[in-house]
């Protein structure tokens, strides 16, 4: 039971039930992500002004992990420069897959809650799908990103 709580932490459950920035944004860059294994679907909208992510939102349907990840991602990258967001994704990806991640600056902040995912290899893609989709939007690649 305790190990399940490592995955389904309160922050994750909260964000999956009450996702933040859960809406489309008019005139924003967008990209779609799809995890065929789970059926998770996410659309990420991002508005970049002078290299800074001025607004970001998402829509879609998926498991608690993918929804919470998308929600926490939007909170984490809003107001950051696009290259900072990409850097954060690298850190985030590491925290989801490796147990020797160094985050001396504490940059991950709340995203640290996803470290439990690494014990559930089939669920890693649920957590990283929104980030892959965000990067695709930043790269102006609206075609559907697939995890498979």
């Amino acid at each position: 039971m305790s190990d399940l709580r490592d995955l389904y932490q309160e922050v994750i459950l909260d964000h999956s039930k009450r996702p933040r920035n859960f809406h489309a944004i008019d005139g924003a860059e967008l990209a779609k992500g799809h995890n065929p294994l789970c059926g998770d679907r996410v659309t990420v909208f991002v508005k970049v002004v002078d290299g800074v992510i001025a607004d970001v939102g998402f829509q879609g349907d998926g498991c608690a992990i993918s929804k919470a990840s998308a929600s926490l991602m939007t909170e984490a990258v809003k107001g950051k420069r696009a290259d900072e967001a990409r850097h954060l994704f690298t850190l985030f990806h590491d925290v989801c897959t490796r147990d020797d991640v160094e985050d001396p600056e504490g940059e991950l902040e709340k995203l640290e809650v996803f470290s439990g995912v690494r014990e559930y290899p089939v669920r890693v893609k649920c957590a990283t799908l929104p980030w892959h989709t965000l990067v695709a939007a930043l790269d102006h690649k609206p075609d559907t990103i697939k995890t498979e």
Binding site: L4, C63, A64
Partner: peptide, 14 residues
């Protein structure tokens, strides 16, 4: 209601 099947599957697995 309110729980995605993959979350059901992961919790039942454990």
């Amino acid at each position: 209601a309110g729980v995605h099947p993959h979350d059901i599957g992961t919790i039942l697995d454990r």
